[in-house]
Amino acid sequence: MAFSPENRAGTLSGILFVAIFAAAATFIAGLGPIKALGLSPLVIGIVMGIFYANTLHNKMPKEWQSGITFSGKKILRFAIVIYGFRITFQQIAAVGMDGFLVSLTMLTSTLILGSWLGHKIFGMEKDTSILTASGAAVCGAAAVLATEPVLKAEEYKTAIAVSMVVLFGTISMFLYPVMYETIIKDAVGFLHMDPRTFGIYVGGTIHEVAQVVAVPASVPGSPKEMADAAVIVKMTRVIMIAPMLIVLGLYLAWAAKKEGGERNEKTKLVIPWFAVYFIMVAGFNSFHLIPQHYVDIINQIDTFLLTMAMTALGMGTIFAKFKGLGLAPIYTAAAMFVWLVVGGFIVTKVIVGA
């Protein structure tokens, strides 16, 4: 047990060690050039964790490992639960049924397509395929982190998925404003989108919340309705992570039984209760019982806890475990990227029709 009398000191030291890394990541993410790139503390944290894992890992007292593991699992689940304070049901209702349908369609199609392509076409291990697909389908690194406990995946698989989210999410952040200015804004016919529709397209197809916020801000003179639609649709995708994880748990149990894995741990139905609690927190937040100032503080704490979890996962990522994967993760993430950009455009035009 992590906090048994004999392990307590090592666990606390490990947690403090991870917290120091997370604090450094938070500071670095706030620096001008890094902030301009839209890189969140979560991304900086996992990079720092991976660097440490492949350089100085053997210098750490082994007693601290329980604290790192605690940060990557228990703190992670708690952070996902209070992530619900970023969302209200009123926000989801405000964007309308068309925004909801775009979110649902893109999440479902991207998750299924990415999982299938990664595993069946590019030969990637199943858990890594699902993690990579979840990051693209829902909300980037946070979705990968939330999916990892359901799959019981190893840290390096999570790191692979997060790296793909960072790569193609960053490309999206620069590509979409250029597309809007050069093609979409002044086009006629099917290629044209009004600002609200483009916002729905952005929110329904770009990986990270921070990247979604950055795109309308990068469009010269973009109207407020573009940014509002983008963020609300994105948060609609975020809240869908809870039902997605529940369905994933049902699928894993069904698949394990079908394969004859009566003794396989994944045969047992896994209900991700932290995802259920996440929805409950979002529901509570919808009543606005807590002043917004305090909600903002909770969200800042939550970002730090997520950064700790991401850093801890990075600390368990050894490059030697990547051998044999080749370019399969990049092929899978690239295929999903094309679907999000092209397929997402078509889906948005068909559903919204503006």
Rank of each mutant, 00 (worst) to 15 (best):
L145S: 13
L113Q: 04
A354F: 06
G204R: 06
E265M: 10
V102S: 06
K234Q: 06
T132E: 15
M48K: 05
T170W: 03
A94D: 14
A242W: 08
T88L: 05
V178L: 15
F70I: 01
G261W: 02
G84C: 11
F17P: 09
V238I: 15
I82T: 08
M124V: 08
M124Y: 07
E262R: 10
G261S: 03
V219D: 14
S40T: 14
K257M: 09
A143P: 07
H57N: 14
L305V: 09
I351F: 10
M179V: 05
K62G: 07
G14C: 03
I130D: 06
L327M: 03
A230L: 00
K268L: 07
L37G: 04
I46V: 12
M60V: 15
P195N: 04
Y156F: 15
R77L: 11
L113G: 07
T26H: 09
K35D: 15
M179F: 11
F287E: 01
I330H: 05
M193K: 04
G96A: 04
P243H: 11
A29I: 01
T105I: 15
A320S: 10
G343P: 10
I80L: 12
L131C: 12
Q65P: 06
T348H: 13
I297L: 07
V81Y: 09
V231N: 06
A328C: 07
I246G: 10
A333K: 03
T236P: 02
I28H: 06
Y52H: 14
P61S: 08
D98G: 04
L111A: 12
G140V: 13
A133C: 13
K73A: 08
G249I: 12
G326E: 00
G324F: 12
F70H: 05
K126I: 15
V212E: 11
S40M: 11
K258T: 07
L104Y: 02
A354K: 13
I200W: 00
G84K: 12
F174E: 11
G316Y: 00
A136F: 14
G189D: 14
K74W: 08
S172G: 13
Q65M: 09
T132W: 11
S115K: 03
F85N: 09
G261Q: 08
I46M: 06
V81C: 10
L327H: 00
M240C: 13
K266C: 01
G45S: 11
I44Y: 03
V352T: 05
G283E: 07
V352P: 00
A19H: 11
F274I: 01
K268A: 09
A159Q: 03
V188F: 03
A29G: 04
S163D: 03
V347Q: 02
L56T: 14
W64D: 08
I232P: 00
M336F: 01
M235G: 01
L248M: 13
G118R: 04
L31V: 05
G99Q: 04
M106S: 09
M48H: 02
L245M: 15
I46R: 01
L289Y: 04
E265R: 13
L39C: 08
G14K: 04
L107P: 00
L151H: 12
N285Y: 02
E181L: 15
P243W: 12
G14R: 06
W273S: 09
